[in-house]
């Protein structure tokens, strides 16, 4: 049972949660990213996620290692879905367990931020009036320095 993986099938949050369950845990935080219908008033019909699968799973594992380094008491698991997703479908589930809740919240939020930085997965939005690859989730210019964001290269 891998803790970091991509799948084309619907994700069960419960299954991801079970991967981090342990007797030392007092807190489990879960992030579920879902497809929302409206973004700035624009109606999404559905999405498609494309991934560079082996590298994406490697980068998810790297995020797990970063979490362990920053919060040694935390344990993480991440599953990201690819392919066509409808409104309200789950795109990603991140579960983090820890003896203490503060750590579990912080590490979880760190993981979703890192996914948006270093994991080669791309979202194509299909709206009523057309479609577009989304490449600017963080609302900053794409690699403005011609260099990868910090932490991208430190394998």
């Amino acid at each position: 049972m891998k803790n970091f993986l991509l799948t084309e099938n619907p994700i069960s949050a419960e299954e991801v949660i079970q991967k981090v369950a342990r007797r030392e845990a007092g807190a489990v935080t879960v992030f579920i990213g879902t497809v929302r219908e409206l973004t700035n008033g624009k109606r999404t019909l559905y999405l498609e996620y494309e991934a560079y699968k082996p590298m994406a799973e490697k980068m998810l594992e790297k995020i797990g290692e970063e979490v362990k380094e920053k919060w040694p008491e935390a344990e993480a698991a991440i599953t990201h879905r690819t392919g066509k997703l409808d409104i309200s479908d789950t795109a990603v589930v991140i579960a983090v367990s820890s003896p203490h809740r503060k750590t579990a919240y912080e590490a979880n939020e760190y993981a979703i931020e890192r996914i948006k930085e270093i994991v080669p997965i791309w979202k194509k939005e299909f709206w009523e009036d057309g479609s577009k690859w989304i490449g600017d989730q963080r609302e900053t210019a794409a690699y403005p320095d011609g260099r990868p964001p910090e932490g991208m290269l430190d394998q």
Partner: peptide, 24 residues
């Protein structure tokens, strides 16, 4: 693995160009 632009490619390598990502 991500590499900087001065990385030297060797025969047999698989190079990927990664547009700005938008997972999550």
């Amino acid at each position: 693995s991500f590499v900087p632009d001065d990385y030297e490619i060797k025969p047999g390598d698989t190079v990927a160009f990664i547009p700005p990502v938008s997972g999550g």
